[in-house]
């Protein structure tokens, strides 16, 4: 895993959809086992209705990360192991 450690101020685990990179294909939404990703109903500069994390229920399973075809559109944040 190409994992980096960063400092965050939100609850873990969580995902971030980098909304200006999202092409609105909906695959993350389709495959999220916890149904915690949804279309935002808003359009980014590319013209796509981008996905967003609804803020609850993420288990950090990373399924959305691999389901997403865009290299940088989804980031998954998990607790650092052992902490």
């Amino acid at each position: 895993m190409s994992n980096e450690i960063v400092e965050v101020d939100f609850q873990l685990p969580a995902i971030k959809v980098i909304n200006h990179l999202c092409k609105g294909c909906g695959l993350c939404i389709e495959h999220c086992p916890k149904n915690c990703i949804e279309f935002s109903g808003k359009f980014n500069q590319l013209g796509y209705d981008y996905a967003q994390y609804n803020g609850e229920g993420c288990t950090g399973c990373s399924i959305c990360f691999y389901a997403c075809p865009e290299p940088g559109a989804i980031e998954v944040y998990k607790k650092v192991k052992g902490e």
């Binding site: 895993m1 190409s2 994992n3 980096e4 450690i5 960063v6 400092e7 965050v8 101020d9 873990l12 200006h20 990179l21 092409k23 590319l46 990373s62 990360f65 865009e70 290299p71 940088g72 559109a73 980031e75 998954v76 944040y77 998990k78 607790k79 650092v80 192991k81 902490e83």
Partner: peptide, 26 residues
Amino acid sequence: MKAQVLAKPKAFYDKFERKGGTNLET
């Protein structure tokens, strides 16, 4: 809080300069 992040792998360029034009991120 420290978090382990799974993000764009480093074998990708940060910005896709070779693509040209205005959108160098997707």
